[in-house]
């Protein structure tokens, strides 16, 4: 069994095992992005976004053996909880809620449409938790269009759906740069946030891109 595809397996443990490979990819990516994300956050926030996500990644890596025993939905929910417990900054409750709401929405043998629906539920959760909307210059500027694109294409070709998700995430990130922050610490610097990359939008883009790469390589 190699990498996970969005196509379902009838073995729940196999699904979860493949998702753990994706988890490893995301953790390695975020640990490597610590300095970049801290730098972006230092410009318009409190400078700890990279460190916070690195802490989440280390916590998730430690949790790996426990996650391997769970069904997909349980594992994603449990991972979300670990993110909330380990982070300590606003990104903890936000990314944690994303995963916890996704986990709640996932059936035991999720197919592409289930993943798309779960992602949408997660994004709704982030918006509620942060009392935020697209256009506020947050991670939602990336997550919301990415989720919409995946939902629209999920029933068609998987490769196209992933490509559409990535393209929507990139467009959302580019658009977000020119916005003025309305939520989070960056809102305190007001106009000065215009033209800066939002650290949450950046980490969301990194993750969406990595998910698209991982699943795309394993297509078929």
């Amino acid at each position: 069994m190699g990498r996970m595809s969005l196509a379902q397996s009838h073995n729940p443990a196999e699904n979860t095992g493949a998702a753990l490979e994706l988890l490893d990819v995301l953790c390695t990516l975020l640990l490597g992005a610590e300095d970049e994300l801290n730098g972006l956050d230092r410009a318009i926030g409190d400078g700890d976004h990279g460190g916070n996500l690195a802490r989440a990644s280390r916590s998730l890596s430690e949790l790996r053996p426990e996650l391997a025993e769970l069904s997909m939905g349980e594992a994603v929910t449990r991972a979300g909880r670990a993110v909330v417990m380990s982070v300590g900054g606003a990104s903890g409750p936000l990314y944690g809620t994303l995963l916890m709401e996704m986990g709640k929405a996932l059936p035991d043998e999720p197919g592409p449409g289930d993943w798309a629906a779960a992602f949408a539920a997660g994004v709704d959760g982030v918006a509620r938790r942060g009392r935020s909307a697209e256009g506020d210059k947050t991670m939602l500027d990336v997550l919301a269009p990415a989720s919409r694109a995946l939902s629209e294409e999920a029933s068609a070709d998987l490769h196209e759906a992933l490509a559409a998700m990535r393209a929507a995430a990139e467009d959302g990130f580019e658009t977000s740069r020119g916005l003025r922050a309305k939520r989070g610490r960056a809102a305190y610097v007001g106009e000065r946030s215009v033209g800066h990359d939002d650290p949450g939008a950046r980490s969301a883009l990194l993750c969406v891109g990595a998910v698209a790469d991982f699943l795309g390589e394993n297509k078929g």
Binding site: D48, N52, R55, M85, V87, G88, G89
Partner: peptide, 11 residues
């Protein structure tokens, strides 16, 4: 303080 004792909060 965050879970590591730095600035932040802990659930």
């Amino acid at each position: 303080g965050n879970p590591d004792g730095g600035l932040g909060t802990s659930l």
